[in-house]
């Protein structure tokens, strides 16, 4: 019995077919693992290692480099308050202080009920709506202390369940099929294209010399 559920295992195998080399699927597979478990558990990382042909340490070492990949449990909602320069100028720093007081945790912490993990994040490219907040990578802004509290209350009450999936589910649109045109078929085609190009070039040069 693997760490991935049968359904996730099937999606994982589909992902592997998208890349010429298996290791390229490592990060998409980590996202998939987080969709299943909310974070990267050791058994899931071991299965990703098996699927991509690397060691579990390499999976951990790669995952730990990236902000979005969590090897420890986080809340159902990962709340990121942006304090980078565009948000800072519009009160992002003050909004983070408010969020810390309101949720009762410092940035990086998780509330006792495990509903919310608060993060101070770098620019989320939502600067025309500064100060901006992301909840499981869904964007909100501009927010005040009051509208932040309102957002938290609604998240807690489940009012955003259709908009903000639980932490780990990055995208709800998947590619159904694998690669449609195998690489060797494409390469044969490219060879033919290159040959035709060389012919056109030679013909153009011959015409030039003829003049």
């Amino acid at each position: 019995m693997g760490a991935f559920s049968p359904e996730m295992r099937e999606r994982a195998e589909n992902l592997l077919t998208l890349y010429p080399k298996r290791r390229s699927a490592l990060i998409p597979l980590c996202h998939l693992a987080q969709e299943q478990a909310g974070h990267l558990t050791s058994p899931l990382m071991e299965e990703i290692a098996e699927l991509t042909g690397v060691t579990p340490a390499e999976v951990y070492g790669t995952a730990s480099f990236y902000d979005m990949l969590h090897t420890e449990q986080v809340g159902k909602f990962l709340v990121g308050v942006c304090t980078n320069v565009a948000c800072l100028l519009q009160g992002g720093g003050e909004l983070l202080e408010h969020a810390e007081a309101s949720l009762g945790v410092a940035a990086g912490g998780t509330t006792e009920d495990e509903m919310f993990t608060l993060e101070e994040v770098e620019c989320v490219a939502h600067c025309d709506k500064a100060p901006a907040v992301q909840v499981n990578y869904r964007f909100f802004g501009p927010l005040t202390g009051e509208s932040f509290d309102d957002l938290i209350a609604k998240l807690r009450a489940g009012e955003y369940d259709g908009v903000v999936p639980p932490h780990g589910t990055l995208t709800r649109v998947t590619r159904e099929n694998g690669i449609e045109v195998p690489l060797d078929e494409v390469l044969a085609e490219r060879k033919e294209m290159d040959r035709a190009k060389a012919e056109r070039k030679a013909a153009a040069e011959a015409a030039k010399e003829g003049n």
Binding site: D67, M68, V181, E185
Partner: peptide, 22 residues
């Protein structure tokens, strides 16, 4: 996208790849 696009004989696949925050 895919095989023999618009009957031109040109085929190519396109993959959307998610980053992970860096």
């Amino acid at each position: 996208i895919g095989r023999n696009i618009f009957g031109s004989g040109f085929s190519v696949d396109l993959v959307v790849h998610p980053g992970a925050g860096a």
